[in-house]
Amino acid sequence: MSAARILTWEVSASRGFETAWAQAGDGVLRARGRAVGTDPEPYWVTYDLDAGDGLVTRRLRVTVESGAGSRTLDLRHDGGGAWTVDGERLPAVDGALDCDLGLSPLTNSMPVLRHGLHRGPGEVELLMAWVSVPDLTVRPSRQTYTHLRPGRVRYASGDFHSDLEFDEEGFVVDYPSLARRLAAV
């Protein structure tokens, strides 16, 4: 496992910012992060992500605070394809390997790293457990990741697509229309 990286993005889609403290290596990604957004309403997000055993999500814990109060989510994968949200089964996303935290570029790293798409040819279509922010609703999302060239991967879901730029370690540098990483200090 590598030393923790501190990654900060300006998130244009939420008119806010996100910072993640992330460690990746040996088929594992662990991260904790904080985000602030102002669209669709002012909110704060904190999260802890644990993806292991081939970069498969084990658990995502998220808390959102807004003018309406505080909401929490505990999303878990059992390692065999089944998911729970706050202890309740969620069969709509059975078979998914990854979570996708809305408005966060961090969770795009798991499928890209698992399949080495930031480095070499390939394309994968995946079912994701997509978490909407700031309401924390979990829905199934079909997503395709396609290697375009080293460091460049096309993300597509439904009619939407964007060509994402990744660094050598598999973290998003630029996600047009969503976020752009700020330079490290």
Rank of each mutant, 00 (worst) to 15 (best):
L136F: 07
R71K: 15
S12E: 15
R139C: 01
R59V: 02
D94R: 14
Y155P: 02
V45L: 15
R76S: 04
Q143E: 14
D50N: 09
R181N: 03
E168A: 14
G95S: 11
A4W: 01
V62N: 07
V173W: 03
W83D: 03
D159Q: 13
L90T: 04
T144N: 04
E168V: 05
G87L: 09
L75F: 03
L148K: 10
R34F: 14
A13G: 11
V185K: 08
H77Q: 13
D50W: 02
R5W: 03
W44T: 14
V133L: 15
R61T: 10
W9S: 07
T8Y: 05
P42M: 12
L103M: 08
W130E: 03
S12M: 11
H161D: 15
L178Q: 14
V133N: 10
V85Y: 01
R180E: 12
T144L: 08
N108G: 04
L55I: 01
D174G: 00
S70Y: 00
P134H: 08
A179I: 08
G81E: 12
E88H: 11
D167A: 02
S157I: 06
L73T: 06
E125W: 00
G69C: 07
E18T: 08
L103R: 11
G16W: 05
D86M: 02
Q23I: 12
S104C: 05
R30Y: 00
T46K: 08
I6E: 14
D163E: 15
W9H: 09
G95R: 13
E18R: 12
T63D: 07
T46N: 12
A51V: 06
W9Y: 10
R76Y: 01
V124L: 10
S162Y: 04
R32C: 04
M110Q: 12
G170M: 04
A96V: 07
A22C: 08
L29V: 15
D74L: 10
S157L: 06
V153F: 09
A24E: 15
R152L: 15
G16L: 14
G95W: 10
W21L: 13
D39A: 14
L75Q: 02
S177M: 07
R32K: 13
T72C: 05
D100I: 05
D167H: 03
